[in-house]
């Protein structure tokens, strides 16, 4: 296959594209939950980068990038739980998840 000079470049491009998709989703959607979905995609793209760099890096036996990805997965799970909890409690207050309508600082 000719496409990318090295396998690492291919993975990095996929990760960059996924990151951009996630960023676009987070910036353009109205629904707060879909913004969180965009953020999750961005985090996952970063994980792919970490794993790819670990795999093709100079010293994979040290497990550095791998551990980064594992910790990132764990932290992202907590982040999703807290973020969605916040969305639900905001919904209980305002009865909407539409970010364009959440423009008041007063509860």
């Amino acid at each position: 296959m000719t496409g990318f000079a090295t396998p690492l470049a291919g993975y990095l491009l996929v990760a960059a594209l996924l990151f951009a998709i996630g960023l676009a989703g987070a910036l353009t959607r109205r629904n707060a939950i879909l913004v969180l979905i965009g953020i999750e995609l961005m985090l996952n793209a970063a994980n792919l980068n970490l794993i790819a760099f670990w795999r093709y890096g100079p010293n994979p036996q040290a497990l550095t990038g791998f551990m980064f990805a594992i910790f990132s997965i764990a932290v992202a799970a907590a982040e999703a739980a807290v973020g969605l909890g916040l969305v639900i409690s905001i919904y209980r207050h305002t009865h909407t998840t539409d970010l364009d309508q959440m423009n008041r600082m007063k509860g």
């Binding site: 951009a20 998709i21 676009a24 987070a26 910036l27 353009t28 959607r29 109205r30 879909l34 364009d100």
Partner: peptide, 17 residues
């Protein structure tokens, strides 16, 4: 389903990519 400022968001994402 897209917010009012969707165009700006798209431009930023494209620029980042």
């Amino acid at each position: 389903v897209f917010s009012r400022s969707w165009f700006v968001g798209l431009v930023i994402a494209a620029a980042v990519f």
